[in-house]
Amino acid sequence: MAARNPVPSLGHVVVIGGCGFLGSHIVSLIIKRHPDTTVSVLDLRTSSNRNASSQVSYHDADITDLDLLLKLFSQLKPDCVIHTASPHFHLPPAVHDKVNIGGTKNLLKAAQETGVKAFVYTSSAGVVLGPQTELVNATEEWPMVTGDAQPEYYTTTKAYAEIAVLEANRTPASFLTCAIRPAGIFGEGDVQLLPPIIGAYRKGQTKFQVGPNDNLFDFTYVENVAYGHLLAAQALLHTHKMLPTVPLDHERVDGEAFFITNGQPVYFWDFARAVWHECGDRLPLSKVWKLNADFASGVGFLLEWIFWAIGKTPNLTRKQVRYSTVYKYHNIDKAKKRLGYAPLVDLDEGVRRGVRHHLENEAKQAQKKDQ
């Protein structure tokens, strides 16, 4: 029998935001796939999503505090930093500036000054999506949409942070960086994508859809996104060993951005119906009411004004209408060729895992209330 290929250690990895949704999955996957790797988690609060492995240590830290980061990095001496931390999408612009841009620059400075070899940044596939743009097999060569052209301020700050990360590559020459751009992340512990879709099922709203459902959309299971980050870290560390040799352009990972998706774009409402089916919905398509997108957008505009007056958010907004009717899928050939990426979990299985986890948690919470 041929000997198994040894699993490479990533040395000492610091996961920024490692108690969050994506970050905690990255920590778990490191433990699973790279058992000789030491992991340190830095997060604003490290009380949730903790991994029980003895390989993992936890440290409360605010990435907007440069002095604290320099102190921690000097103590931990990481080989690699994976930066997933980001504030909630709906927080004020000043918070996004402070954390996404300022915090990322602090992390870069701390990493550069303490001998970190590899820095992987979690960007967003949304950095190339504008108000009039449709993403059809979008590649990393598509221009970023920022500033006044970008309606989502959060996305602008993610783009500026990505630019800072890639510009920091090879400064110093031994410091290597790259960016991962995931699209539509969902899975166990998801608080943004699956909960509102499942909530629509609970409210009996599965009989409605906006638009004709002819727009392909990328949804990505969280473990696949985590895997993309680990492949990027591994590639940067391998490149570091080869220094001062510089990889050929068509092989290069450092200084580059990569889209990571499931590679299975689906019609938008088909994904929602897959989630609803896993919840128990069996409504036939013949019973579905198709709302005209322009009409729905007008209703959303009206509801936004009414609910704004009472300080609440309506169930239907113009943003939701556009999100559910726009083409938004990406080409992942670059990640396949340069990182060796291929999804670990297909879309159907990812939906099953994510929904079942959510429903089990709901049942546990209900049981606690009854006790």
Score class of each variant (00 low, 15 high):
M1S: 15
P6M: 02
P8F: 07
S9A: 05
G11N: 06
V14F: 02
V14R: 03
V15D: 06
P35N: 05
S40E: 08
V41R: 05
L42P: 02
D43E: 02
L44V: 12
A61R: 04
I63E: 02
I63T: 08
K71S: 15
L72Y: 07
Q75V: 13
K77H: 12
P78E: 02
D79K: 02
C80K: 02
T84W: 00
H90T: 13
V95M: 07
V95P: 01
V99I: 15
A110M: 11
G115R: 07
S123C: 12
A125G: 15
G126Q: 08
G126T: 06
V128R: 06
G130A: 10
E134F: 12
V136A: 06
M144C: 09
V145M: 01
G147H: 09
T155L: 15
T156C: 12
V165E: 01
E167W: 09
A168L: 05
N169L: 03
A173D: 13
S174R: 09
F175Q: 00
F175R: 00
I185Q: 06
F186E: 06
F186V: 07
V191I: 13
L194G: 06
I198Y: 04
G199Q: 14
G199I: 06
A200L: 12
K203T: 00
G204D: 09
Q205V: 01
P212V: 06
N213T: 03
D214A: 14
L216M: 13
L216W: 13
Y221N: 02
Y221V: 04
V222S: 07
V222N: 10
N224Q: 02
N224D: 10
V225H: 00
H229R: 05
L231I: 04
A232F: 13
T239W: 04
H240N: 12
L243N: 06
L248V: 04
D249H: 10
H250W: 08
R252F: 00
V253S: 07
T261G: 10
F268A: 01
W269F: 15
W269N: 14
A274G: 12
V275T: 05
E278H: 12
D281E: 13
L285G: 14
K287F: 10
K290F: 08
L291P: 04
N292E: 07
D294Q: 11
S297W: 14
G298C: 09
V299M: 11
G300H: 08
F301I: 02
A309C: 14
A309W: 14
T325H: 12
K337P: 00
R338K: 14
L339G: 00
L344W: 00
L347K: 01
L359I: 03
K364H: 03
K364T: 01
Q367G: 00
K368N: 08
K369V: 11
